[in-house]
Design a protein around this nucleic acid. Structure first.
Length: 484
RNA sequence: GCCGAGGUGGCGGAGUGGCCACGCGACAGCCUGCAGAGCUGUUCUAUGUGGGUUCAAAUCCCACCCUCGGCUCCA
């Protein structure tokens, strides 16, 4: 039974989607005025794993993530760079996809942009005005917080003392109460604008998520996610805007990820202590970065350091080695069985047993609010056992090995890890085939030298190959090699 | 001030009443011509401090100390 922590109740709750077998989730995406940094990756990867696990559980997941492509920061940055907000957005959205494809993040069902939903936002605001939840002042429109009685139910904050947007004296004068927030902002000279019933202007920040969530997923959705910093005011305001209009619960489960910190301080643009995803992936394999990010539970803070990335790297190598061993045994078993079918042995039984235990442990961990560290622990234990069995003299049938393979593949799919490693019989180019044959020839020569106790030649071959990035490893059943 | 998260071994990180995951590092043994990988074991009588409850507490209660975050843009 899947349980997840709901920020609304501050408790873990059993997860039951609104529509049987289907999950509708919305995650707040970035404002595309600058490169994504590792803090963003923390959030995006966390919800990617959540989404993947829901799919593993058999849910049909509709996953929407927005791009905020118009707001104060967009305008300011476009001005500084002498470009338009549209070009700025195009540039960083493209970069966003490059970064997160690299990190193995699955694409959302749709990536709606704020500027593509202006008419819907205007309509929503008009309805709020009609119902008395919003009012116009000097060509801007504000939400009347005092009218929405449940305001503060998510963040447990009394009403905000300031506008959620930049507090400007002019705005404060326009607003009835300081806690009211902007739904529509009147145009200032030189700014991009859209026509509206209140004159030229642009939407406030919060309205886009309410509108796009409703448009793509319906008035009530299952999961709405984002960073902990969005709880107030962003998500609180989304609830107000949406529920004031529909009278229905906007979101059933609010989920918020913890921060990525550096020296225990939040990684953020304003503190200047951030690393972009491009910087990090230039230094570490994206898969290492991903493993690092999921080695903490998504709600816990996670502290960045090179030592942590190095640890993740070692861990990943270990996982890869275990998979490589499995692949070799599978090929061997396959060749053997082509001649003479293998009988299931005690090793088969034990491996099978461990596999079932592993799968159960993995699911229990993930069912408990997506406890990825515990899930990884079960993986480690299982791989240790697999290594022990596959390194011993006992034989395991292809049937069992294939089952191990299948389950590892499914779990790799949930974590977004090591699946590249698992390609069986990948198609090779002619050059690659020739290279492999040459390497095998050298291994054969070295084996002959070793047989004659000519270790000088044997070590020379191994050393030279290592220089070319090829690592030889001697096993009982022969010598294996891999690229390093 | 208000709201919230957290302090676990050399390090990272789980665990919400008993026997304390898992990983990284270090060391030892097995294996090996050597190395690597792998396995096994040790490091490991770890739970911010002081009290209390209990046969039993990292886990529950009380007090205190410290760190970080939100209340202004932020994943």
């Amino acid at each position: 039974m899947l349980e997840l922590y709901n920020t609304l109740s501050r408790k873990k709750e059993p997860f039951k989607p609104l529509h049987e077998g289907e999950v509708r989730m919305y995650v707040c995406g970035p404002t595309v005025y600058d490169s994504s940094h590792l803090g963003h990756a923390r959030s995006i990867v966390a919800f990617d794993v959540i989404r993947r696990y829901l799919e593993y559980k058999g849910f049909d997941v509709r996953f929407i993530q927005n791009f905020t492509d118009i707001d104060d920061k967009m305008i300011k940055r476009a001005d500084e760079e002498g470009t338009s907000t549209v070009d700025l957005a195009t540039k960083y959205i493209q970069e966003y996809f490059e970064d997160f494809d690299k990190l193995g993040v699955k694409r959302a069902t749709a990536f709606p942009k704020a500027t593509e939903h202006i008419p819907e936002m205007i309509e929503h605001i008009q309805k709020l005005v009609k119902k008395g939840y919003a009012y116009e002042a000097n060509n801007s429109v504000y939400f009347r917080v005092s009218k929405f009685k449940k305001y503060g139910k998510l963040s447990r904050q009394e009403r905000s003392k300031e506008d959620a947007e930049e507090p400007e004296p002019a705005e404060l004068e326009e607003k009835e109460q300081p806690e009211d927030f902007a739904l529509w902002k009147a145009m200032k000279p030189g700014e991009p604008f859209w026509e509206s019933p209140w004159g030229k202007g642009r939407p406030g920040w919060h309205i886009e998520c309410s509108v796009m969530s409703t448009k793509y997923l319906g008035e009530s959705i299952d999961i709405h996610g984002g960073g902990l910093d969005l709880v107030f005011p962003h998500h609180e305001n989304e609830i107000a805007q949406s529920e004031a209009l529909t009278g229905k619960p906007f979101v059933r489960y609010w989920m918020h990820n913890g921060f990525l910190t550096v020296n225990k301080e939040k990684m953020s643009k304003s503190l200047g202590n951030f690393f972009t995803i491009q910087e990090i992936t230039a230094k570490y394999d994206p898969e290492v970065v991903r493993l690092f990010l999921i080695s903490s539970q998504y709600r816990s803070p996670i502290d960045f350091s090179d030592a942590q990335l190095e640890e993740a790297k070692s861990r990943l190598v270990r996982i890869h080695n275990a998979i490589d061993l499995l692949q070799r045994r599978l090929h061997e078993a396959h060749e053997t069985e082509a001649r003479d079918p293998l009988k299931p042995s005690d090793a088969d039984a034990e491996l099978w047993d461990r596999l079932m235990t592993f799968q159960k442990e993995f699911e229990t961990a993930m069912d408990d609010d997506f406890n990825t560290p515990m899930a990884l622990a079960s993986l480690s234990s299982f791989l240790s056992k697999t290594n022990a069995i596959l390194s011993s003299d006992s034989t395991v049938t292809t049937g069992t090995l294939l089952k191990v393979y299948e389950i590892l593949d499914r779990i790799g799919e949930v974590l977004g890890l090591f699946r590249d490693r698992m390609q069986l019989g990948a198609i090779k180019t002619a050059e690659a085939t020739a290279t492999e044959e040459l390497i095998r020839l050298l291994i054969e020569l070295r084996a002959q030298a070793r047989k004659k106790k000519d270790f000088e030649t044997a070590d020379y071959i191994r050393k030279q190959l290592k220089e070319y990035g090829i690592l030889l490893e001697d096993e009982k059943t022969g010598t294996t090699w891999k690229w390093i």
